[in-house]
Measured scan of single mutants.
Amino acid sequence: MPSETPQAEVGPTGCPHRSGPHSAKGSLEKGSPEDKEAKEPLWIRPDAPSRCTWQLGRPASESPHHHTAPAKSPKILPDILKKIGDTPMVRINKIGKKFGLKCELLAKCEFFNAGGSVKDRISLRMIEDAERDGTLKPGDTIIEPTSGNTGIGLALAAAVRGYRCIIVMPEKMSSEKVDVLRALGAEIVRTPTNARFDSPESHVGVAWRLKNEIPNSHILDQYRNASNPLAHYDTTADEILQQCDGKLDMLVASVGTGGTITGIARKLKEKCPGCRIIGVDPEGSILAEPEELNQTEQTTYEVEGIGYDFIPTVLDRTVVDKWFKSNDEEAFTFARMLIAQEGLLCGGSAGSTVAVAVKAAQELQEGQRCVVILPDSVRNYMTKFLSDRWMLQKGFLKEEDLTEKKPWWWHLRVQELGLSAPLTVLPTITCGHTIEILREKGFDQAPVVDEAGVILGMVTLGNMLSSLLAGKVQPSDQVGKVIYKQFKQIRLTDTLGRLSHILEMDHFALVV
């Protein structure tokens, strides 16, 4: 994948999101292997301009796509893939009243899908469409860049269908997702969380590099694949309309690839034109409109599966009536509230959605109805927002919020430890010299600072030695090549209790 991002070429006709291997024109390309080798690009942008032909009021008969309808489940399912879809609609009884809503608040519980998330729908649909058009064949390999849930859905379907599955996901995604993927037989590649989507090191860039190296491999490409919004247009939206008897006044959905909100909203605009569509985008993402909503100094966020630093091709923002931004604290607070007060075992993005819903639905009156999409299960986040310690460490809970008995030293300040200034190293000294210094002084790690004293990161003896043994660096290389740029900081005025929580999850903390 090139470091400079080429513009994806656009073909003359058809839909841009065809499933299957992508040609340089962004659509299915038939021909000899030699032709494909000559024409197939190194990668295709996940934010390529959409060429979708959908228009409100256009006859369904003019759609270029294969459409399906929700099917009634048999008493005995032939395999677990038949437990994807037909998820329950559940009334939220307490939270709406707590925040003064007059309307009825309903939750579409997508964590009841077989793999635990709304992404099971698009995973199965992308595979079925690729099999139907002859792209996927027995023994082929599926590769997908994902925040985890699409990966789980694909790995689940691949396990049943017999495909090899490789999932490329950023490091910030939970260990629970990784464990589930491994249990399903998927191979996992992790990428830096802070890598831009168009960087060769991003999950998108690495996935395309693997595709170019592995024979008979395919990126189904949830960011561009029409099967993504079509899955929701054909099934999720129809289920909502049936469950609500066609009567709903507002739908609120958090947005990642945009397939969920695009597919549902398009069908609702056709069948229930008075329904307002509300999009939820986390602070630090750029999906919301108008652009002024996205202006923030924050560039990272903890909530998973929603928000991006690019506009995915499948996201149709014209069908969203209003956007709201959400933050991590309210997302996790509301997710825990949904679990504790409503018994809905949902993930953090569901918290984002409901946090926005109780604001947006203030305009609705008694007798009206708001539906929220709860995308995934708490299963993926047992060591994250479900953990009091994690919430404390991230600053989303305060010590006084917890009532468990603490040891005698818990409320003492870090400054009472009488710490001395640490050994520091410059980023320009060599790895070999740094190892000598650390061994001589008896230290395992040291902060790396520039000549102005600005902290650049941390270097550890173990990481340097393993990097040297693996051949990633040489003793003569500058130590700046092996620094940890993500590390926890703590102030002298913070409590030892807070430091204790940090050290339970990290090997060190830097006192500043």
Rank of each mutant, 00 (worst) to 15 (best):
A253W: 02
R58F: 11
C275P: 01
E110F: 01
K137Q: 11
L184W: 01
P49M: 08
E128W: 08
T262R: 00
F99S: 06
S50P: 10
T146K: 09
D79P: 03
A8N: 12
G274R: 14
I240P: 00
Y163R: 04
H65A: 00
P64R: 05
I188A: 05
E40A: 10
E131Q: 13
G31D: 13
Q242G: 13
A48V: 13
H22S: 06
G205H: 06
P46C: 05
P138L: 13
F197H: 08
H203E: 05
K82W: 08
I264S: 02
I142S: 00
R51K: 12
K108F: 02
D140Y: 08
D198F: 06
L220N: 00
A130E: 03
I214H: 03
D140W: 04
A130G: 13
L156W: 00
P46K: 02
P21E: 10
E29W: 14
Y163T: 00
R121M: 03
P6N: 09
N225R: 01
L124P: 08
E40H: 10
G100Q: 10
E239H: 05
I261W: 02
S50W: 06
R161V: 09
G246W: 04
Q242R: 12
S73T: 15
C272Y: 09
H203S: 11
D249I: 00
I167D: 07
D198R: 06
L220A: 03
D86I: 09
E34Q: 12
L106E: 07
V252D: 09
W54L: 06
R266M: 06
Q7K: 12
N149H: 02
P88F: 03
A71N: 12
I143K: 01
K83Q: 13
E213W: 03
C165H: 00
L101Y: 04
L136C: 08
I152W: 00
I80G: 12
T5H: 06
L230R: 03
N225V: 02
L230P: 05
E176Q: 14
V255L: 08
W208V: 09
R161H: 11
P49Y: 03
T260G: 07
E9M: 03
S73I: 11
P145Q: 04
S19A: 14
L248H: 04
S32N: 04
R132I: 03
A159V: 15
S3H: 10
R209T: 01
M89V: 10
A8I: 10
